[in-house]
Amino acid sequence: MTMKQLSVYVENKPGTLAEITGILGENGIDMCALSVADTERYGILRLIVNNPQKAEDALKAAGFKVSLTDVIAIAVSHKPGGLAGALKYVAQAGVTVEYMYAFVSPKADTAYVILRVQDNEKAIAALQQGGIPIVCGEEVYGK
């Protein structure tokens, strides 16, 4: 029920993001969502791509610190309170959210949210019980 997120350690120096996205482009990798955590010294680039394994191999070959992280993707209704309605189930289950990011789906009334939580199984069970749709790779990539 989880999907793979590509995580890349990005040193704070000019051109690093351009280099990473360039490599992904050359390898025909399509990005459908991304988020960056930035600290004083480094950033962490998190990507949802159509071919995570290929993307990981390409970036590793170029010398980047990359890993695939299991995350949960959920579909929530694109209206006020839509996300809150889903997150309350995660909260009720006592699961901590490390980080999350959202993007709008091609279906106009739905938004996708990527959740990185401390306990995937517990969060998935809680979300399913609350009737929140958990989406799989193809649906998110949209192709």
């Binding site: 995580s7 350690y9 490390e98």
Partner: peptide
């Protein structure tokens, strides 16, 4: 240097 398999996707882990 981090180990190759170190989880780093959240700032907290680092």
């Amino acid at each position: 240097e981090m180990k190759e398999d170190m989880e780093f996707d959240a700032v907290r882990l680092v």
